[in-house]
């Protein structure tokens, strides 16, 4: 990507190549769930990502791939304003969520709409399974106490954990296995009812079977959420996502439909990465 103009052209190309069925659907949801406009993040003087223009569609899974240090996570974390916590980080450009510029909103309100699942399962260690699920609601005070039971059951069912934990909801969350903890974290995330879920390599710390369960969840979540997933695992990106963005050295190299990205990528660099020539 040399400059913004060529970027825009690429985006136009994508529009043209979308098959009619999806085209029709995308017109119905013409609003992008996430739109970034020249998004750059700098750490001190060093650029983490530069001039990213990306349009993430509603109710789609978008995966972000690229070698280590290419800015995948930096991009993801800018979408829910996580860089606020890093004093050295400076964010430039605009981010629109459902067509609204997020700089007009409080970061706390944005994060309620844009949930996040992290690389390492991170349930709150002092809380039980039950309390972990309702942690967001409880701390935000956004639901009545009497609704908690229902919320816990609904979200644990939704995250595929209910049958495994329904008899020990009050036991410490840390007593769960890694894969279960990650599904608990997903339940905790969806309990606050976000529209967009960001996933930062959600399965890289898990065994293959647990990872498969998470992938299945991602697949099932499509109807309800817009998902952006960063992954090191290209097979995973190919399996779960509709769209794939390839980042390299802080720049967006290619953003295509996943099928196209893995069969016939437009950029030479993408092809080389996908075929394992570097990265």
């Amino acid at each position: 990507m040399k400059d913004n103009n060529s970027m825009d052209n690429d985006n136009d190309n994508i529009e043209l190549e979308i098959d009619p069925e999806i085209q029709e659907e995308s017109e119905l949801n013409s609003k992008a769930a996430v739109l970034t406009n020249d998004l750059s993040v700098y750490f001190n003087k060093r650029a983490g990502i530069e001039n990213i223009n990306l349009k993430i569609r509603k109710n789609r899974v978008t995966s972000i791939i690229g070698p280590s240090g290419c800015g995948k996570s930096t991009f993801l974390r800018s979408l829910n304003l996580m860089h606020d916590m890093t004093p050295s980080a400076r964010v430039f450009g605009e981010i629109f969520i459902n067509g609204e510029n997020i700089s007009d909103y409080n970061s706390v309100d944005i994060r309620k709409k844009v949930g996040m699942v992290f690389q390492k399962p991170n349930p709150f260690p002092t809380m039980s399974i039950y309390d972990n699920v309702i942690a967001g609601l409880k701390l935000n005070g956004s639901k009545k106490r009497s609704d908690y039971d229902e919320v816990v059951e609904k979200n644990l069912i939704h995250s595929g954990l209910w049958n495994e934990v329904k008899d020990r909801l009050k036991t410490p969350a840390m007593s769960l296995s890694g894969g279960q903890q990650q599904r608990l974290c997903i339940a905790r995330t969806i309990a606050v009812d976000p529209e967009i879920i960001l996933m930062d390599e959600p399965t890289s710390a898990l065994d293959p079977i647990s990872a498969a369960k998470i992938e299945e969840l991602i697949f099932n979540f499509k109807n309800d959420y817009t998902i952006v997933i960063v992954t090191h695992n290209m097979q995973q990106a190919a399996r779960v996502s509709d769209m794939t963005a390839f980042f390299y050295l802080g720049k967006l190299v290619e953003f295509s439909k996943t099928r196209r990205m893995f069969t016939n990528p437009r950029e030479k660099l993408s092809e080389e990465y996908i075929t394992g020539k570097f990265g």
């Binding site: 829910n80 996580m82 916590m85 706390v108 309100d109 944005i110 994060r111 309620k112 709409k113 949930g115 996040m116 992290f118 390492k120 991170n122 349930p123 709150f124 260690p125 002092t126 942690a135 967001g136 701390l139 935000n140 974290c185 905790r188 995330t189 606050v192």
Partner: peptide
């Protein structure tokens, strides 16, 4: 990661410090 987990749920910073960080 615990602070981030809490913030990502839309919990404000002071509540994160009080209810998550201090409690832990």
């Amino acid at each position: 990661s615990l602070r981030e987990a809490s913030l990502a749920l839309g919990v404000s910073r002071w509540k994160t410090t009080l209810k998550i960080v201090l409690t832990t």
